[in-house]
Amino acid sequence: MYVMFILIAFSLAVSLIFLAAYFWSVRSGQFDDKYTPSVRILFDDKGTHKKTETDAESVGNHEENQ
């Protein structure tokens, strides 16, 4: 029966990973705007222009949080 401790430890580890992911998503501002991204994903971008916009964005966010 004590094998349960391994299971518990494992399930805890998984849930902690998800908690950390949730914390990261809140802090990185994913809950700031709950509407625009849902629209943005539907735009065709004709494959021409860069998709690195969001990267530049999050860099800006980190700087500004200081």
Partner: peptide, 27 residues
């Protein structure tokens, strides 16, 4: 939203633009 996020295509000096629609803001 579409237009304001395409500012880069209109003017290369702009790196990117991002809209927050509920707040009616463009960064």
């Amino acid at each position: 939203i579409w237009l304001l996020e395409k500012l880069h295509d209109m003017d290369q000096r702009i790196y990117s633009s991002l809209v927050n629609f509920p707040r009616k803001e463009v960064s």
